[in-house]
């Protein structure tokens, strides 16, 4: 029943543009990393970005919350254009959560403090309320009992789930995942993917850079393939995996799906 309700919300909000990227270019020094990126993401959409290493996937999603600066083109997130204006950048970052490959939890703070830090300092939420919210999300990622431990005492999978809970505590409209399972032991990948799948079911707008093709098939509305800084191909997962159009996509898929 709960699921129906969220499904309804998804169809309701789908159609509004959450992220709009137009003719975006980026260089590292002389190196042209991102070339003419155009991408529209609708509210409630789940997008998986894949491609060989060095193809610019991470850089692209890091441009969306301005961890990387683009040099040409426009990025508009939730109606706010990313420019050098710090106010805009802060506004975008408040609404966009990010999960990193190496978790990037704050090792000197407990799990609970990790989760309440941004709500308290950025959203100016009272401490008790922030802790209540944190507990709610820690329960959702199934580790409420770890709340008073330090990140160093948890396993990789648990740390990544804390990182997801930490982002959710800010109640973001959009979640970015930068290879969230690449640093995990195989037996821990599933626990993280389960949390992400549940999040997708609830209608969160998500962009995931990942090589978990099973995940892509289960939750994505769209799969994007990047190579050498360009978006080569994008399609619904079924079409994308069964009937890739571009030669490079075919090569990439044949290589990662071999085993």
């Amino acid at each position: 029943m709960n699921e129906e309700a969220t499904q309804e919300r998804v169809t309701h909000t789908l159609g509004d543009i959450a992220i709009k990227i137009r003719e975006m270019h980026k260089w590292y020094g002389q190196f042209h990393v991102l070339k003419d990126i155009n991408l529209d993401v609708q509210n409630g959409e789940r997008i998986v970005v894949c491609g060989p290493s060095g193809s610019g996937k991470s850089t692209m999603i890091r441009c969306i919350n301005r961890l990387e600066e683009h040099q040409r083109g426009d990025i508009i997130v939730d109606g706010v254009e990313l420019t050098n204006d710090l106010k805009n950048i802060e506004a975008v970052r408040r609404e966009v959560g990010m999960v990193f490959q190496h978790f990037n939890l704050f090792p000197h703070l407990t799990v609970m403090e990790n989760c309440t830090l941004a709500p308290i300092w950025v959203r100016k939420m009272p401490k008790a309320e922030a802790e209540e919210t944190a507990m709610k999300y820690l329960e959702r990622v199934k580790i409420p009992e770890q709340a008073h431990k330090y990140p160093g005492q948890l396993s990789g999978g648990q740390q990544q789930r804390v990182a997801i809970a930490r982002s959710l505590c800010m109640n973001p409209k959009i979640m970015l995942f930068d290879e969230p399972t690449s640093a995990l032991d195989p037996e821990m990948i599933k626990e993280v993917l389960d949390v992400m799948i549940e999040l997708a079911r609830e209608g969160m707008t998500m962009i995931c850079v990942t090589h978990e093709m099973g995940f892509a098939k289960t939750v994505a509305n769209r799969v994007i393939f990047m190579d050498e800084g360009q978006i080569i191909e994008q399609n619904e997962p079924e079409e994308f995996f069964n009937n890739p159009q571009n030669e490079r996509t075919q090569l990439f898929l044949s290589q990662i799906l071999q085993h």
Partner: peptide, 8 residues
């Protein structure tokens, strides 16, 4: 980066 991404 994590701090920036959270809007601090």
């Amino acid at each position: 980066e994590a701090a920036d991404a959270m809007g601090l």
